[in-house]
Design a protein around this nucleic acid. Sequence first.
DNA 1: TAGATTGTTAATCGATTAACAATC
DNA 2: TAGATTGTTAATCGATTAACAATC
Lengths: 233, 233
Amino acid sequence: MESIDKVNGTFGKRPIEQKTNVSSAVIRRLPRYHRCLGELLRAGKLRISSAELSAIMDVTASQIRQDLNCFGGFGQQGYGYNIKFLYNKISELLGVDEGYNAVIIGAGKLGRALAATHMFERRGVNRLAMFDIDPSVIGTRIYDVPVYSIEELGKFCKENNVHIGVLTVPKEAAYEVTNVIVEAGVKGIWNFANMELRLDNPDVIVENIHLGDSLMTLCYEIKTANEKREQND
Amino acid sequence: MESIDKVNGTFGKRPIEQKTNVSSAVIRRLPRYHRCLGELLRAGKLRISSAELSAIMDVTASQIRQDLNCFGGFGQQGYGYNIKFLYNKISELLGVDEGYNAVIIGAGKLGRALAATHMFERRGVNRLAMFDIDPSVIGTRIYDVPVYSIEELGKFCKENNVHIGVLTVPKEAAYEVTNVIVEAGVKGIWNFANMELRLDNPDVIVENIHLGDSLMTLCYEIKTANEKREQND
DNA sequence: TAGATTGTTAATCGATTAACAATC
DNA sequence: TAGATTGTTAATCGATTAACAATC
């Protein structure tokens, strides 16, 4: 029988000094922990040990404990981790419900698809608006998101405290748009253009998505696996 | 003056034994080399040294040479790399124009957006068809790609030698669909569902795209940068 | 208390960088 | 030939895994 004390008790009593510079390898694993713990939570599970989580996620228990300890002592010896507590801690770390404001720049197919998903709201990010150059979409709403002229981009970002710019414009337009929003105080850019977006300003974070690179990697792996099979014949 | 011999000459004369298991860190850099060399090629540049490429790409010259040497001796001492030759070699490695056949499963917003792009054709991958359960789209064409009933998925893959399945279905449907296409001989899965797709079959390659994870990573970085700024105030 | 499991240090492994001999 | 630049080995760095004392 689970002790109520242990389940709802005082976890993280010992707030270990948070490391100042956590490696990006660790940070990129956080969303996956978050996802997995969310599922366990919804399944009604209360606590989990690093060994159990290790089996579910197919990573070593050692890595889980090391990763979490970059941010604090979230577990309890002899008990494991309280799932709700840990989930909330990771949510906080990841800035979920920090209430960041985002705009999508480029109302093409990909921009619309992103606007349509629950991607943003699910992570507490507000999609305030979309911007495009095409007069036939300016002034309309796409999945309830208003579309404005790209001319108004800078002004809008300044007036609405926009934190995140989502770039789904052709790569030729990427730097032009980027200059406008960085000037307007945007803090991060989620770049879908098929190029490396490099900024002088070290205060602005860039997260590149290279769908094409991912497809090519898949093709490489398929090809290599095929060749191996042929050799073994 | 560039010697024609050197530019069009016999590069890679010494085909170094290709490593059997190249680390995924190296493989994931190949598409970027490919992209960069493609640009240099279009710009009419003929040759490049690892030092020059290093400056352009912001990686070390050492890493470039190490990476390329996993696949063969593509350069020439005292000269550098012939851009066209190297570009073609990397294209070949990545399976560009291998003529792989792909189907998109899920004709929702993301599936349509992917169908609309030149993503596939640009890499020599054929988008043969899309599949969905919605009767109102079945039988139509989306950006010139025919949409069929999900019922016909397995049969279609078998009859048309489909190599790649692009998964843009809700995560609840992911395994069901996966079983069908793996059974039908698909070699690789490009998974956009917000979940880890794990297969028993080691011969089928899975490439996961986690857009949500990427957004969260961006939020983490923005939050951390903000906190650092506040501390310095 | 005894058992379990963390937090953390130490050992290992792998990836990146540096150095330089080979060679074009 | 002399100069340049690769291919490759050796050194360094960082990330993962193992081990175990601390402790709930």
